[in-house]
């Protein structure tokens, strides 16, 4: 589930967290756990079928001080990309 992304000359991993159709612990809790393992600058993409993720992920990201990168919707799946900033 790892996708390589190019950042200039540096190849960095974007970890994809597939939380589609999962209710407990749910997409945000999975993101929080993954963020602890990530390095500063890493991007994480969470896939969620819970529309609430569109609000609760940015709420936490902004409170902690990480970066929101992008939120898109494909069908009933939201792709939320964040970057570890600290």
């Amino acid at each position: 589930m790892l996708e390589l992304l190019s950042k200039g000359n540096i190849m960095s991993e974007r970890k994809i967290i597939d939380a589609r159709g999962t209710y407990c612990p749910g997409p945000l809790m999975e993101l929080i756990a993954a963020m602890k393992q990530a390095e500063i600058g890493d991007e994480l993409e969470i896939l969620s079928t819970d529309e609430g993720s569109v609000n609760d992920v940015p709420e936490w990201i902004n409170k902690v001080g990480h970066d929101m990168v992008e939120t898109t919707q494909e069908g009933d799946v939201w792709h939320i990309i964040v970057r570890k900033a600290k």
Binding site: Y23, M29, G52, E59, W60
Partner: peptide, 10 residues
């Protein structure tokens, strides 16, 4: 609790 409510299940 880690997220914005007091349990994972709404």
């Amino acid at each position: 609790y880690p997220i914005g409510r007091i349990h994972a299940l709404a």
